[in-house]
């Protein structure tokens, strides 16, 4: 057994899975409360990634950073999360709010419209070129050369550590928020039964706004994480990521937050092991086939409750 290959694939899968998980969390939160498949979520992620890129450019570009790396990272996360969150709130306010009582498919198409708009507006304003965070070049590349070595001589760079640890911190923060705070409880109540929650005196409007803000802020952060680990940003990056996040959310049990994390990790690991041990050409097909089997065995996702239909 080639342990080096195995451990490398494991690390790659967990890193990529963390990014998927963060995007899937926002997807799942919004779904839990509004039962809305928010296809524009991936584009919020794209905007977050561009905000991070903008900051790198402002501070002299990747090769000649005029600012401490830690400070830059903090700044990138704060700005991307705020920017993503605000964008999410705006989308909810102007595109979805009036459709809350409409048939479920209407906001779905609206979400596609928002996605079209954001992708192409980004291309108009920012250009279609691929831009790179180039974290390999920050201060002589210490984000990648420093780090530690796992068994079987697998080197893990700080960049990968930042992604995984950062994602875990955000997830813990989110869990505490949802489980312990007043607003978190209101969110859970709303997602369980919006009407009953409203009757109990919960301000549903506010809860929805908060949900969109947090979910979209996570997507913004995921954009920056993705940039640090995988460098590239471009206007159409959100489409594929949104699709995979949707898949991750459903696999874990849509509306279920730990499920979204599990789903994201499952996809990340399935991808990298499919490439490592089966075929890179049919990687996507293999992943989809695995997922179809998972869903047929557990029709409501890995951690989802069996759907009880109300009469």
């Amino acid at each position: 057994m080639n342990w080096n290959l195995f451990v490398t694939e494991l690390v790659a899968g967990i890193t990529h899975g963390s990014v998927y998980a963060l995007i899937a969390l926002g997807y799942s939160m919004v779904y839990g409360i509004l039962k809305l498949l928010n296809f524009a979520h991936g584009d919020v992620y794209m905007v977050g990634a561009f905000i991070g890129y903008g900051l790198i450019t402002v501070f002299g570009g990747a090769e000649a950073l005029s600012i401490n790396i830690v400070l830059l990272l903090v700044l990138m996360f704060v700005c991307a999360m705020l920017g993503g969150g605000l964008l999410g709130v705006m989308i909810e306010r102007f595109a979805y709010r009036r459709l809350r009582a409409a048939p479920r498919i209407a906001p779905l198409i609206t979400a596609l419209g928002v996605s079209f708009f954001l992708e192409n507006a980004a291309q108009l304003v920012l250009g279609a070129q691929f831009q790179s965070y180039n974290s390999f070049g920050w201060k002589g590349g210490e984000l990648w050369t420093k780090g530690f070595t796992l068994p079987a001589q697998v080197h893990v760079g700080i960049a990968q550590v930042i992604v995984v640890v950062g994602a875990v911190v955000l997830m813990v923060f989110l869990t505490v928020f949802v489980q312990r705070t007043q607003t978190g409880k209101a969110m859970r109540a709303t997602s369980f039964d919006r009407e009953a929650a409203a009757m109990m005196g919960i301000d549903v409007d506010r809860v929805i706004v908060v949900t969109f803000f947090i979910g979209s802020a996570l997507a913004g952060a995921a954009g920056v994480f993705n940039g640090i680990a995988y460098q590239q940003v471009w206007p159409y990056m959100g489409f594929q990521a949104g699709l995979f996040a949707f898949i991750a959310a459903v696999i874990g049990g849509i509306g279920n937050l730990p499920g979204a994390v599990l789903g994201g990790l499952t996809i990340g690991l399935a991808e990298s092991f499919a490439i490592g041990y089966l075929s890179s050409t049919f990687q996507a097909a293999i992943v989809f086939a695995i997922l179809i089997v998972v869903l047929i065995v557990r029709p409501s996702g890995l951690l989802g409750r069996a759907a009880v239909q109300k009469v």
Partner: peptide, 19 residues
């Protein structure tokens, strides 16, 4: 690019007007 931006706007506006 404008064409696709406008299609996005048309989808948003029409769905909001007639869900």
């Amino acid at each position: 690019i404008t064409r696709l931006i406008l299609i996005g706007v048309i989808l948003i506006v029409l769905m909001n007007a007639r869900p």
